[in-house]
Simulated assay, not measured.
Amino acid sequence: MTSLAVGLASGWLAYMVGMPLPWMLGAMLGNTVAALAGAPVRASMPLRNIFVPIIGVMLGSGVSAETFEALGDWSISFLVLAPFLMTAAGGSYLIYRHLGRFDPVTAYFSAMPGGLNEMLLLGGEAGGEERRIALAHASRVLLTVTFVGLFFGLVLGVQSGRSGGIWTPIGAPGVLDYLILIGCAALGVPFGRLLRLPAQRLLGPMILSAAAHVVQLVDLPPPTVFVIAAQVVMGSLIGTRFLGARLREVGRDLFLSVFSTTIMLITGVGFAWVVASLTATDLAQAFLAYSPGGLTEMSLLAFALGGDIAYVSVTHIVRIAIVVFSAPLFFRWINRR
C-alpha cells in the first residue's frame, strides 16, 4: 500500500501545482523517485487485477454508436502501422545494438513496441536478457506517458477529464447502472479469456461496457473519483517497475531510452500526419494511437484526455499483434542467414 500512498500524495501535489494529467503523471513520477531511492513501493498485483477490469469498463464508456462510422478510416491506419513499426523499431534497434552494445536478441525485444509482458516473455524464450528488456520497456512507457501528458496539456491545452473539468458525483449513476457496470467487469474477464484476447482483463470488460453504452443500457460517464483512482493506480504501477534497479543501471537505460523513445515519437508524429492527411482522423488522436506506450497506459491517457478510446485501443492491439507474430519470423530469417 506504500506505492498507493506515494501515488496519491504525488498526484495531489501535481494537481495543486497545475501539472497536466496530474493524478497519473504525479503518481508515476513520485513512485519512480521512491523506487530509485529504495523505498518499499512494491506493485500490488491483487490491486492491479482488480483495477484493470475497472479501467476496461471506464474505457468502454467512451465508445458510442458514432465510433463505428470511422471504421473505414481505421483500416488505413492499420495499413500504415507496418511501415511505421519497421521505421521506428528499426531506428530503436540500432540505438540499443550499437550505442548500448546489447546483444541482437536483447536489442530486438528492447526496441519492439509490443507491450512489456509480451516482449519480456518472447525475449526470455529467445535467450535475451530479461532485466534489460524490462527496463527498456518501463523506461519507454515512463518517457512516453510523461511526454504525451505534458504535450497535450501544455502545448495543446487539453484539460484532463472527458467532461472538461465537470465533476461527475459518485451518486450520479443509479443502482441499475452500477449493477450493469459491475457485471461488465466481472463477466468481462472470462469473456476475454473465452475469446483469447490480448490483455484479457482489460479488453473483455471494455468490450462489454462498450456494448452496454452503445445500446444505451448505461449513458452516464463514470464518477470522477473512479477516473482519478484509476489514474493513481496505473501511474503508481508504472513507477514501481523500477524498484530494485540500481541507479547507475537505470541511468544508462534511461539514457538509451531517451534516444530510442525520441526516434519513435518523431516517427509516430510523421506517420500520424500521414494518417490524418489520408483520412478524417484528427492528428492528435492519430498521434495517441501511434505513441509507443503500453496498451493500458495509452488507452487510459486517451480516456483522460477526451480522445477516441476505441480507435486508440484497437490500433495499439493491432500493433502488438504485428510485433508478436513477426518476432518468430524475424528470428527464423536471421538464423537462416
Rank of each mutant, 00 (worst) to 15 (best):
S163D: 13
F152G: 00
L156H: 06
P104V: 02
F331I: 01
G174A: 04
L197G: 03
M206S: 09
L295S: 08
P104E: 00
V141G: 12
V175P: 08
A289L: 07
A35Q: 04
P292F: 05
L13S: 11
V218F: 04
L122H: 09
S163F: 10
L176P: 04
T296S: 09
D219Y: 02
G72T: 04
G161Q: 13
T168I: 15
E118R: 10
D103Y: 01
T296L: 06
E297S: 07
G18S: 02
A9Y: 11
T281S: 10
I133D: 06
S139L: 11
L300T: 07
E129Q: 12
S277R: 15
D103T: 01
L94D: 02
G244F: 01
G192C: 07
R196Y: 10
F287G: 13
A136I: 05
V41F: 01
V225K: 05
L120N: 09
Y311P: 02
G183P: 03
Q285K: 05
V175Q: 14
T87H: 04
S291A: 15
T315I: 11
A134C: 09
T67Q: 00
L79N: 03
I317E: 06
A185Q: 00
A284C: 07
L208R: 03
D73S: 10
V63M: 07
H98D: 02
T146K: 06
A9D: 12
A272C: 13
P328F: 00
T315H: 15
S75V: 15
V148R: 09
G161K: 14
Q285L: 02
M206V: 09
P223Y: 01
